[in-house]
Nucleic acid binder design. Structure first.
Lengths: 233, 233
DNA sequence: ACAATAGTGTCTGTTAGACAATATTTT
DNA sequence: AAAATATTGTCTAACAGACACTATTGT
């Protein structure tokens, strides 16, 4: 068996929206073993016949649960990176998942923390293995789906305003989004029963109060729109 | 190493369009080793430190090349399936790819052949492991992308007609597609430099001759349209 | 001329985007 | 009343779909 086997892991790119800063943050975890012991890295677990998982998806859920006591709003497999160079111990595979968390998500202990995605992209924080690449790929998936789906709404709390939905979408896409377009999409989601109008109002410091929307229980997966958000111009 | 390692393979869902039957076919290969020796299954290779591949993508290309001497028009990773049950030998992973082949693709020898996708879906041919599931997932990916991209055109020969493009798109989607919409998409692809009008004509048995389009060299990946093809009604 | 097939033109509906107009609140 | 902010309405553009119309060929 050892001659035909390979090291395999599941790694999680778990994102949280910082509503004040209007930026995405990624959950990192201090490594508890060599190589790169003590460094900040993506939370992940080894998968093999001895671990208790019945499937990759179960291993992904376990990685989030064990390393960070986190239950995601959304979890999807993005891809698998495998080559001879990504791990100093030799040929290895990482199947990596995109997880979207509640913005109120808090973490226990000093072994896990959220880092601004921008700081990671700018290499202000350097990650071991190819974890920077895995984060980049997960974010590309998120941006691509945000053009034509309601995926960004999974980054919002149960009750949210139009402007918070706009903030989430813009953070996912990395660019501004037309206010009218997003409002119309929310209207369509309301008609489709995906979100509801609570009737509640939030009073900003000044001006007209904001309507408060809420997520409604529905089938799995985001709503798919027929058209993409377009580049401005 | 053996205690933390797992069996991993790359499997290829390679599709060819049968233009006459207007159906998709999948490339299968007779297994050369246990388990399921001699049965028709997806072509694939084991990945581990001893195989010569530097990456998963290289392993995928090698699987197609070694098992079937095939060079695909398009190759993309779809996902990874991993659990304790898919292989009788124990916990295993399969990273599976979607490959699109030239319809003129021919095969050497008795060890590989094309099977109609419909027959596989209808369980007229039963595949080992979870290969039926991998095929289903790959086809779902193809159908999803066919709604908003030029991916089906990779199933066509270098020179093709509008009706062949329609046939390819309908085979990918599993439903009829509006003729006018597809013609307009081809016009847009022509404007974008992805296809060209050869000026050549093909004379059907009766009636007006068909224009012949051709693929033009361009950046990797299919063209992305801004809107999806819609359900009929 | 007529049948058969390919291709074009026109109209409708939907929805993203731009932006003006209106509504609701605090100061 | 004025300022600030949120929300609504109106207009345009792009594009999928439906379908009528025209074009080109063989018999």
């Amino acid at each position: 068996m050892s001659s035909i086997a390979v090291m395999a892991s599941v790694d999680i790119v778990a994102l949280r929206l910082d509503l004040q800063a209007q930026r995405l943050q990624v959950l990192l975890h201090r490594r508890e073993r060599e190589p790169h012991l003590g460094q900040w890295a993506l939370p992940g677990v080894i998968v093999n016949g001895r671990t208790p998982d019945n499937s990759l998806d179960a291993a992904a859920a376990r990685a989030l649960q064990e390393k960070a006591q986190v239950l995601p709003r959304h979890l999807e497999q993005v891809g698998t990176e495998g080559n001879a160079f990504r791990d100093p111990r030799g040929w290895s595979l990482s199947t990596y998942y995109l997880a979207l968390l509640d913005p109120a998500q808090v973490l226990d202990g000093e072994q896990q923390a959220f880092f601004d995605l921008d700081d990671l992209s700018a290499r202000k924080v350097v990650l071991p293995f190819d974890h920077a690449l895995l984060i980049q790929r997960a974010c590309e998936r998120l941006a691509a789906k945000s053009l034509y789906s309601s995926l960004p709404l999974y980054l919002l709390p149960a009750r949210f305003t139009v402007l918070e939905a706009l903030t989430a979408t813009q953070a996912c896409l990395g660019r501004t989004v037309n206010n009218t377009s997003l409002r119309k999409r929310l209207e369509r989601l309301k008609d489709a029963g995906w979100v509801g109008d609570t009737g509640e109002r939030i009073q900003p410091r000044l001006g007209r109060p904001q309507q408060v929307y809420e997520h409604l229980p529905h089938a799995n997966g985001p709503f798919l729109f027929e058209r993409s958000l377009l580049p401005e111009g």
